[in-house]
Amino acid sequence: MRLLVLGGTEFVGRGVVEAALARGWQVTVFHRGRHRAPAGVRVLHGDRVAPGGLGALAEGEWDTVVDTWSAAPSAVLASARLLADRVGHCVYVSSRSVYAWPPATGLAEDGPLVEGAAADAGATDYARDKRGGELAVTQAFGADRSLLVRAGLVLGPWENVGRLPWWLNRVARGGPVPAPGPRDLPVRFIDVRDLARWSLDAAEKRLSGPFDLVSPPGHSTMEGLLGACVRVTGSGAELRWLDAETIAAAGVEPWTDLPVWVPRGELHDAMHRADVSLALAAGLRCRPAEETVADTWAWLGELGTSAPLRPDRPAVGLSQAQESALLGG
């Protein structure tokens, strides 16, 4: 298989490239050159939002292109139009954020969607931009050659958002750690490598249309995730479990101040009660949560420095003052 990845040097794109190389595929990455590309790929440089920035893609043919773009849909449309006659199939990594709010419990791929930004529009907000990206790909490649991978929470090695790395680094420091509960609160996510594997399998099969991609029910819990952080770091940290009311009273925000965690309610249902039967039927397999945690910790150790963070995303995690407030000073 001849694969073109738009990006391919960070997180999801990097996971796709590594998985494709492991299969012996011929991989080309098109990126701005800000990060080193994985060894073994053909590299094309360009900036898709700059005038003439797609010039390096003017020639060449590929079986599949993978695009993970999450800003202005116009960038997706421009590259898709340029490639549609020379690439057989397009995989667009979208998001479950494209569903209209509030999504019903157990929502599947036929649920109502946000009004997407126009396919040729500039950046608006994440959900509308991702839906606009879906529309752009479908417009250029046609529905039968477009696979829309609507990912849930993505964790694992190469993470550049900082959620799991923050927990691992905090737990590694030891001592009492605020642990948002309850302990048995369900947590569902997709390891970036499982997302990549499924997407490449689907590309080989030429699957089309939307697929929600996140782990099945029962994958993990907050205790399972944070307990794994304690075990893999060997820190002996003490998890001090707190209820949602205590956390709210301290002015601590779910998801941002306490990465991954959201309390029971509408948002939790939207994130952690999706119907992924379509993806499971198409071969989705998810590794145990402890493996994701252990491999992310190993990756952080290999870096020898802090994890890379996307400049367009806010920092996550508790401040010292917030932690002190949660732990009672």
Rank of each mutant, 00 (worst) to 15 (best):
A321V: 14
G60K: 06
H31E: 01
T305F: 04
S319E: 03
G152N: 01
P254K: 13
P217N: 04
T124G: 11
A123V: 13
A172M: 04
V41N: 04
A237V: 01
I190T: 12
I190K: 10
S208N: 12
S277L: 01
L155P: 00
D67C: 05
R188G: 08
E245T: 14
G251T: 07
V260D: 03
A298Q: 12
A179V: 03
A281N: 11
E223I: 02
A151G: 06
V232Q: 07
S74M: 11
V5N: 05
R150T: 05
S74C: 11
G88W: 03
G8W: 00
E109M: 04
D85T: 13
V161C: 08
P51D: 15
A143Q: 08
R287L: 03
L77T: 08
V316W: 02
P259D: 14
D191R: 09
A270I: 04
A151M: 04
R32N: 00
D269V: 13
R197I: 04
L200E: 07
R183N: 07
R163G: 06
K130C: 10
L284W: 03
D125F: 14
R313M: 15
P103M: 01
A237S: 05
V98H: 04
A172D: 11
D295I: 00
V76T: 15
P112G: 13
A279V: 03
L195G: 09
G46T: 11
D120H: 12
L284Y: 05
P178R: 14
L213H: 03
L225S: 12
T233C: 12
G152T: 02
L44I: 07
S208Y: 11
T28P: 00
G122D: 12
L21P: 00
S94N: 00
A58F: 07
G53W: 07
L54H: 09
G133S: 02
P216E: 08
C286N: 05
T68W: 10
Q26A: 15
C286I: 11
T138R: 15
V66G: 06
E10K: 15
E253N: 11
G162I: 04
T28V: 03
